[in-house]
Design a protein around this nucleic acid. Sequence first.
DNA 1: ACCATTCACTTGCAATATGCAAGTACAATT
DNA 2: AATTGTACTTGCATATTGCAAGTGAATGGT
Lengths: 137, 137
Amino acid sequence: MKKRESTVCPIVYALDIWGDPWSLVILRDVLIHNKRHYREFLASRERIATNILSARLLSLVEAGLLVKIEGDSNRAQTMYRPTQKALDLFPVVFAIMHWGLKYNPNTDMSIPIMQELKTNEEGLEQRLLQNFDDVTS
Amino acid sequence: MKKRESTVCPIVYALDIWGDPWSLVILRDVLIHNKRHYREFLASRERIATNILSARLLSLVEAGLLVKIEGDSNRAQTMYRPTQKALDLFPVVFAIMHWGLKYNPNTDMSIPIMQELKTNEEGLEQRLLQNFDDVTS
DNA sequence: ACCATTCACTTGCAATATGCAAGTACAATT
DNA sequence: AATTGTACTTGCATATTGCAAGTGAATGGT
């Protein structure tokens, strides 16, 4: 699907922004695992290629989901942090997780988040949101 | 992202099945707009190409989200209907719609479903589910 | 019976996106 | 001064998508 400058459908709008196969993995890492550095995204299990990671980070910044915060005179300090627009994806991410949990027999249930999602989704969201007080305040 | 036969993450599991740019558009048409025929999917605003449509329908059938029902001696009767696994995507689709509604200024709010989503999501889901009594019964 | 139309696809090919390996530039560490 | 770590970019092979055209079977009209 080529990008449209405008669509009347909210689903297509969303897919144009993060409907490729990698953006949501990055957003998962930001929102759920509180990652913020290039090297952290690179380290996740899904083994995203460096060029793709760069390209996706850029497009997410352009779409207003992430903000790039550069340190003074040290690239290793560069951080990517979510905007409110990204934080509003929590319900989407949780809904997808519920579905994946139901149908993926290989889900790793030893991760505490998986248990908490089932028993106390609201509490989980509130707790995760505390990682982003700078954005929400 | 190449398909993995197994992942420990429910989100990646989901993305492997419908994380390409077109599958969710087809699922939207099935779940929300009650479409079932090839020609109906082809007619939607997003103008999916015929070869992509074939390929996606096949992969959704293989993933167990759709069932292909062929008429006797007439291809025009062929229908694609959702399984329970697809019906369980309603919460995901609704969450995405809420997000798109909030951030897409071009959303067509004259479509009754958009209003109903905001005021009575639960009722909307129940009503749409009635289109699939054959599956749920 | 004949012809045009509809339908559910397939095929060929150009354009785009992804995957992989290697390289670059800078800063901190040894 | 040399090595390591970090955030990228570049080049190129491979896969996926987009577009136009074609195919074969069934229906509809004259």
